[in-house]
């Protein structure tokens, strides 16, 4: 009887250990198939208003509009199926995940008219549709700069 109790305890403990090992190996397998996200840094919207898109395309649906100076977390995506065009960033803001053109973000907090002249901006009486279209405008504008002399 005592031997059987001992054997029972042994099997109980070994089943617990095997379960622990199985769950950790399953999670490492999942990681290999999932896209890997690596945090690059915090970037800032560098134009009046810009849109975060569902896909890395200026014509993809807009998820959120950022005002100049708003911060986003930028990630590098790698792994199976990760194919982001070179001129786009994958970003996170609160609960929204999306994509923004690199040209519309800067690594340093920019000087923004909304922050520098808030009461002046209030006098424009901007509506939510105005903010949305302003973001769309920056999606459509083709921007270029001639070189320094």
């Amino acid at each position: 009887m005592f031997r059987s109790l001992t054997l029972l305890l042994f099997f109980l403990l070994s089943s617990i250990v095997i379960n622990i090992i199985n769950s950790s190996s399953a999670s490492s397998n999942d990681n290999k198939n999932e896209l890997q996200k690596k945090f690059i840094g915090t970037f800032y919207a560098s134009h009046f208003f810009i849109n975060i898109h569902q896909h890395p395309s200026s014509f993809a649906p807009s998820l959120h509009t950022l005002a100049c100076g708003d911060s986003v977390k930028v990630y590098e995506i790698s792994g199976k199926g990760a194919a982001i065009p070179e001129d786009w960033h994958s970003v996170d803001i609160e609960t929204t995940q999306g994509y923004v053109q690199k040209a519309l973000l800067s690594t340093e907090r920019p000087s923004c008219m909304q922050k520098n002249y808030p009461k002046f901006f209030d006098h424009l009486h901007l509506e939510p549709t105005d903010l949305y279209y302003w973001g769309k405008l920056y999606d459509q504008l083709i921007m270029e700069k001639t070189r320094v002399r």
Binding site: L137, L141, I142, M143, E144, K145, T146, R147, V148
Partner: peptide, 21 residues
């Protein structure tokens, strides 16, 4: 944007920000 940039630079218009819509 590249055509405009090349033309402007060839005519001596430097450090100019261009937005085309």
């Amino acid at each position: 944007n590249l055509a405009v940039r090349d033309l402007f630079e060839s005519l001596g218009h430097y450090e100019i920000k261009v937005k085309i819509l």
